[in-house]
């Protein structure tokens, strides 16, 4: 009747980084034993989850299913009554957290960057408003927290061991959501995960025609062009060039962010770049929190001047 339940994520037979980040967080809380829920055949890799005291094998198909995975987590909560349920603030976590919280009448706090145990509950800090504000909340126990990827040190959770594996009897799924197939990304003309230098544009670019100037700069720097999500959604660049949560994780030698505000979803994809240079007219843009060098000027002025100098 206590402890922390970590909802593990996997894709293509491997635990995702968020799994180890959540385990590291769970262990740092000092809030009792840590249990890890796995799905499909992933319980067979329980030895990778050595930082958990116990692994709950929730069954289900190997392929993620929003309905059956959420129902399985809910059953695990019934069986173990944890004080805290940690779920990734990820594509999968978004489907699971709300139904689990609703089924048990628990408070839910999303976009957490930190969670700490307090008297009778937990103190969470959420990154909201595109990363521009941190919002602290206090929740009573038990509670559900969705944790942003990259908030904790995954290496601390990557401990080999031999946790006990308990099989969970789960009810049959209602079958209203059925997995069809995985769709691999279409190969673009460039693989930005392999680029040494990236020049990335965001919403600040304003119009499709203005991409040309940035492309010119990229060519002079022998860099590849990349972008944040709004540029792809607007149909201005290919998905294969998108950096971030739903795009690609990149770590070039130099990452130059032009007109990118730095929402958590984007930061997740580029924060491991060796050198980050951000140019943004908004001095409060969160991108400056992860950048090594910053310049608060109009990106077109900067681009024009650089192009002129480099030519």
């Amino acid at each position: 009747m206590s402890g922390v339940l970590v909802v593990c994520e996997h894709l293509s037979g491997e635990f995702a980084d968020i799994t180890f980040e959540l385990l590291a967080l769970a262990n740092s809380l000092g809030a009792g034993d840590v249990s890890a829920v796995t799905f499909g055949s992933m319980a067979g890799k329980a030895s990778e989850l050595g930082s958990a005291a116990c692994v709950i094998d929730a069954g289900c198909e190997d392929e993620y299913n929003p309905e059956s995975y959420a129902a399985a987590v809910s059953t695990a909560v019934d069986a173990h009554s944890p004080d805290l349920i940690l779920i990734g603030s990820t594509s999968m976590g978004m489907d699971i957290a709300a139904p689990v919280a609703a089924a048990h009448g628990l408070p839910l706090v999303a976009y957490c960057t930190t969670v700490e145990a307090t008297n009778g509950g937990f103190a969470c800090s959420s990154s909201l408003y595109g990363g521009k504000l941190g919002v602290s909340s206090q929740v009573s126990s038990p509670a559900v927290a969705m944790v942003l990827p990259g908030s904790c040190d995954g290496d601390a959770g990557r401990v080999a061991g031999s946790p006990a594996v308990n099989e969970l009897a789960i009810p049959e799924s209602a079958g209203k959501v059925r997995f069809n197939r995985l769709i691999e990304p279409e190969a673009g003309d460039v693989d930005i995960t392999q680029s040494g230098v990236l020049v990335a544009i965001g919403r600040g670019i304003g119009s499709k025609d203005d991409i040309e100037l940035v492309a010119e700069l990229a060519e002079l720097l022998d860099a590849d062009l990349a972008c944040s999500r709004p540029i792809v959604d607007a149909g201005w660049m290919e998905k294969s060039r998108q950096v971030g949560k739903s795009g690609f994780k990149v770590k070039p030698r130099v990452y130059i962010a032009l007109g990118i505000s730095g929402a958590p979803e984007h930061i997740e994809g580029m924060k491991n770049s060796a050198t980050i240079i951000a140019i943004n007219s908004d001095e409060d843009a969160p991108i400056f929190d992860v950048a090594h060098y910053g310049l608060t000027e109009d990106l077109f002025d900067v681009c024009e001047e650089l192009v002129e100098e480099l030519e």
Partner: peptide, 18 residues
């Protein structure tokens, strides 16, 4: 409905939903 759900790294999953 047939829906595409985005994962990370450009990977998507297709689901049938009642």
């Amino acid at each position: 409905a047939t829906v595409n759900k985005e994962y990370s790294g450009g990977v998507m999953a297709e689901f049938e939903v009642t």
